[in-house]
Amino acid sequence: MQPDDHDDEAEDRAWRAIVENYGERPELDDPPPVSDAPFGGRFGDPRAFSPDPGQDPAAGVGEAGEPPGAVEEEGYVPPPPPPLPRVEPDRMLAWVGVFGSPTVLLIALVLSLSIPFWLGYLLVAGFVGGFLYLVVKMPREPRDPWDDGAQV
């Protein structure tokens, strides 16, 4: 008998003792009621939301999922969104340097294209220069700690 076998047998006996003496199991008087609702009623009965109690909620659904007979009462139409802000040309050039230069270098590397040294140095300088420009143009004042950017 090896020491590992003794440890395994002792461990199995300990687990069996724990399982056998776990505790008394409760006796259930009545079985739980069975519902005729979908999924046994665990997720609610969708038939409760139909205007006609005998009607299936999926039958006769109108456009965009509204129930039959739904009428737009007020006809709210949201205002058109404001136009997207324009990026200044200098910042756009900086972003092109930050994202475009590594992209060109990565494509050249993956496709095994040889680029002249001066173009490689120019792409690296474009990346570093664009990054530094964007860092310098960042706002210096701290943001309001309660400002999450939402506007009402």
Score class of each variant (00 low, 15 high):
1 M>E: 08
5 D>R: 14
6 H>A: 08
6 H>L: 10
7 D>F: 09
10 A>G: 07
10 A>P: 00
11 E>F: 10
14 A>N: 02
15 W>F: 09
18 I>N: 02
18 I>F: 00
18 I>T: 03
20 E>P: 00
20 E>M: 01
21 N>F: 05
21 N>Y: 07
23 G>R: 07
24 E>I: 01
31 P>C: 05
31 P>W: 04
33 P>F: 11
34 V>N: 01
34 V>W: 03
35 S>L: 04
36 D>L: 05
39 F>Y: 03
40 G>S: 01
40 G>N: 03
41 G>E: 00
42 R>A: 13
42 R>P: 00
42 R>V: 05
45 D>S: 03
48 A>H: 12
48 A>W: 15
51 P>D: 06
52 D>K: 04
56 D>G: 04
57 P>E: 01
58 A>P: 00
59 A>E: 08
59 A>R: 04
60 G>A: 01
60 G>E: 00
61 V>L: 12
62 G>I: 00
63 E>F: 13
63 E>K: 11
63 E>A: 10
64 A>M: 09
66 E>S: 08
68 P>Y: 07
69 G>I: 01
69 G>Y: 02
71 V>G: 08
73 E>R: 08
73 E>H: 09
74 E>W: 12
75 G>M: 03
76 Y>Q: 05
76 Y>V: 09
77 V>Y: 07
78 P>W: 04
81 P>A: 13
82 P>T: 02
84 L>G: 05
84 L>Q: 14
84 L>D: 14
85 P>E: 11
85 P>D: 08
86 R>A: 14
90 D>C: 06
91 R>C: 04
91 R>P: 03
94 A>H: 03
94 A>L: 05
100 G>F: 01
101 S>G: 04
102 P>F: 00
102 P>R: 01
103 T>V: 06
104 V>I: 12
111 L>P: 09
111 L>R: 15
115 I>C: 09
115 I>E: 10
116 P>H: 10
117 F>Y: 12
117 F>Q: 12
118 W>V: 05
119 L>N: 02
120 G>P: 12
121 Y>L: 15
122 L>T: 14
123 L>M: 15
123 L>G: 14
123 L>F: 11
124 V>R: 11
125 A>R: 13
126 G>T: 09
129 G>A: 14
130 G>R: 02
132 L>D: 02
132 L>R: 11
133 Y>K: 13
135 V>P: 11
137 K>T: 15
140 R>A: 10
140 R>G: 05
142 P>M: 10
143 R>Q: 08
145 P>V: 02
147 D>Q: 04
149 G>L: 05
150 A>N: 11
151 Q>H: 13
